[in-house]
Design a protein around this nucleic acid. Sequence first.
DNA 1: CACCGGGGTATTGTCGACAGTCGACCGGGG
DNA 2: CCCCGGTCGACTGTCGACAATACCCCGGTG
Lengths: 220, 220
Amino acid sequence: MPLNPVRRVNLAHDISAQLSQAIVAGDFPAGAVLSEPMLAKRLGVSRAPVREALIELETRGMVEFDERGRSRVPSLTHDDLVDILGIRIALEPRAASLAARRADPLAFIDLERNLDAMRAARTPTELARLDTAFHSGIVRASGSRRLHLCWNVVEHQVDLWLAQMQSRVDALCHQLRDTTVAAHAAMFETIRSGDALRAEELARKHLTDWLGVLPGTPVV
Amino acid sequence: MPLNPVRRVNLAHDISAQLSQAIVAGDFPAGAVLSEPMLAKRLGVSRAPVREALIELETRGMVEFDERGRSRVPSLTHDDLVDILGIRIALEPRAASLAARRADPLAFIDLERNLDAMRAARTPTELARLDTAFHSGIVRASGSRRLHLCWNVVEHQVDLWLAQMQSRVDALCHQLRDTTVAAHAAMFETIRSGDALRAEELARKHLTDWLGVLPGTPVV
DNA sequence: CACCGGGGTATTGTCGACAGTCGACCGGGG
DNA sequence: CCCCGGTCGACTGTCGACAATACCCCGGTG
């Protein structure tokens, strides 16, 4: 057994992840104030790691600091959603292209497992989670640390969006399930085959298609 | 007199900016450990705001935490540079396109002033700083908060790169000064004219050209 | 000479505490 | 009735302190 090294615990990191999940789960709706004493009390820790977690989330855009230092959950509008998709259309084709060239077998089994899970997923929430995870996997497979840093921002924004527009997302996911799985499968195969140009194009098309089905979408 | 509101001070934010500048100025070379007590002592503050500043810099990739929690200045390789440029080629055309559509007059005077300063700049370091600032200005002009979050990552990486490859950058800047100014001027005019497609194309070309003059560049 | 164990030092992660500040609330005066 | 000042409570920003841990050097031992 490899006996992977034990990670020195860092409460701030755990708290950051927990807060992300809580926000996505709808525990803190848009506009809610995340006061440090309240979070510290609920989590059973002191304020210091809570503060650090909030700062981390702020640089990823998952909470906002107002002029008085209070952190709030940002509330997204439809324009924000289009904005996020625009960035994804810029970043993800690059990630797909790099992933196709890097061709890391370890990442492939990750992506393949995700595809299987997606085919077996039942609830729309599960489907949405797996969808985001697939795109995350491609970014990881790109092997670019900086792309991953940027993606962290985007991913948190997508999570936020999923949390705030859940009903509409659920409907869309249900409706687009088969096409999404098919698009993912095509991207996976293309990346595995090493065809960077085509992988880039597929990623762009996949996201642009998504943009097309959004109601009231302006030209982008 | 407008009496603009006084900003509530936040040491962590100041420290983050100061550390950025210090790293760029070469005060902490690649691989240097940034110990919290040392920084706190030098800055005359306690460790808490220093920690928060380091966390902020870490999410932007300007420092790295090793497995023991110590923060170090990452050392960039040539591959990293190509990686950074690849992300810029993905992000900045989008920013230019948005900026052309948004057409914020306030941002225009900012960009124009930058152009003038660049024409008057004397040292290569100054030139490099203004170059980055111009690209920052375009991202700000895009009006996308999320694009700006991503750009924060990229900008810090570019700064880091400038700090670590200063000699080569200086030579390049000197050599490419006129073409860079011309390219920036063209981008500025195109953005002001509102031609989003052409602005996007110019931004891409500008960065791709830069990629071309780097020594030993692989195909991207 | 090579190897091992122990003490000292430095650093991180976390905690509780304090000052400053802001908003909410209440009572009094015009 | 409306406006104003004062008080209370809550929250943020910052600080110093403590335990835990890892590194470094040094002496002892086979």
